Deep mutational scan, measured.
Amino acid sequence: AEKTGIVNVSSSLNVREGASTSSKVIGSLSGNTKVTIVGEEGAFYKIEYKGSHGYVAKEYIKDIKDE
C-alpha cells in the first residue's frame, strides 16, 4: 500500500540513511518534489530514493495520498 506525498520545505529536505536525525544524510530533495512512501518509522517516512530507500522527517511531507 504505497502512498505519495509532496516535500513541503522552502529550500531542501535531507534524505537520511535511517529513521533518525543522527543518521547519515545520503541526499536531499527540493520543495514540491513528489515522493513515494513505502513505510514509516517513528517520526520518519521511508521513501523510494535513487533506486533504493531513504528516510525523511514526516513533518516536512504534505498531501499524503494513497496510490
Results as ranks from 00 to 15, higher is better:
residue 1 A to G: 15
residue 2 E to Q: 14
residue 3 K to Y: 04
residue 3 K to M: 09
residue 3 K to H: 09
residue 3 K to W: 07
residue 4 T to K: 08
residue 5 G to Q: 03
residue 6 I to L: 09
residue 7 V to I: 10
residue 7 V to R: 02
residue 8 N to W: 05
residue 8 N to C: 08
residue 9 V to P: 09
residue 10 S to K: 11
residue 10 S to Q: 14
residue 11 S to P: 11
residue 12 S to I: 11
residue 13 L to D: 02
residue 13 L to I: 15
residue 14 N to E: 14
residue 14 N to Y: 11
residue 14 N to M: 14
residue 14 N to D: 15
residue 15 V to L: 03
residue 15 V to N: 00
residue 16 R to A: 04
residue 16 R to D: 00
residue 17 E to F: 08
residue 18 G to T: 14
residue 18 G to R: 12
residue 18 G to S: 13
residue 19 A to D: 02
residue 20 S to M: 06
residue 21 T to Y: 14
residue 21 T to V: 10
residue 22 S to V: 12
residue 22 S to G: 13
residue 22 S to W: 07
residue 22 S to A: 12
residue 22 S to Q: 11
residue 23 S to V: 03
residue 24 K to T: 08
residue 25 V to K: 06
residue 25 V to Y: 04
residue 25 V to M: 06
residue 26 I to H: 01
residue 26 I to G: 01
residue 27 G to C: 03
residue 27 G to R: 02
residue 27 G to D: 03
residue 28 S to R: 15
residue 29 L to R: 01
residue 29 L to A: 02
residue 29 L to H: 01
residue 30 S to I: 15
residue 30 S to L: 15
residue 32 N to T: 06
residue 32 N to V: 05
residue 33 T to V: 09
residue 33 T to W: 06
residue 33 T to G: 03
residue 34 K to G: 04
residue 34 K to W: 07
residue 35 V to H: 01
residue 35 V to M: 02
residue 35 V to S: 00
residue 36 T to M: 14
residue 36 T to C: 07
residue 36 T to Q: 10
residue 36 T to K: 15
residue 37 I to G: 00
residue 37 I to A: 01
residue 37 I to Q: 00
residue 37 I to T: 01
residue 37 I to E: 00
residue 38 V to Y: 07
residue 38 V to F: 07
residue 39 G to F: 04
residue 41 E to R: 07
residue 41 E to N: 09
residue 42 G to I: 03
residue 43 A to L: 14
residue 43 A to T: 10
residue 43 A to I: 09
residue 43 A to D: 15
residue 43 A to W: 08
residue 44 F to N: 03
residue 45 Y to Q: 01
residue 45 Y to A: 02
residue 45 Y to L: 07
residue 45 Y to I: 05
residue 46 K to F: 05
residue 47 I to T: 01
residue 47 I to C: 01
residue 47 I to W: 00
residue 48 E to T: 11
residue 48 E to M: 14
residue 50 K to Q: 13
residue 50 K to S: 09
residue 50 K to T: 05
residue 50 K to L: 12
residue 50 K to Y: 10
residue 51 G to E: 10
residue 51 G to T: 09
residue 51 G to R: 07
residue 51 G to F: 06
residue 51 G to N: 11
residue 51 G to K: 08
residue 52 S to E: 10
residue 52 S to Y: 10
residue 53 H to T: 10
residue 53 H to Q: 07
residue 53 H to C: 05
residue 53 H to L: 12
residue 54 G to Y: 04
residue 55 Y to M: 02
residue 56 V to P: 00
residue 56 V to A: 04
residue 56 V to C: 03
residue 57 A to G: 08
residue 57 A to E: 15
residue 57 A to I: 12
residue 58 K to S: 05
residue 59 E to R: 12
residue 59 E to N: 06
residue 59 E to A: 10
residue 59 E to I: 12
residue 60 Y to Q: 08
residue 61 I to F: 05
residue 61 I to N: 01
residue 61 I to W: 03
residue 62 K to I: 15
residue 62 K to S: 15
residue 63 D to V: 14
residue 63 D to K: 10
residue 65 K to F: 09
residue 65 K to Q: 15
residue 66 D to F: 07
residue 67 E to D: 11
residue 67 E to Q: 14
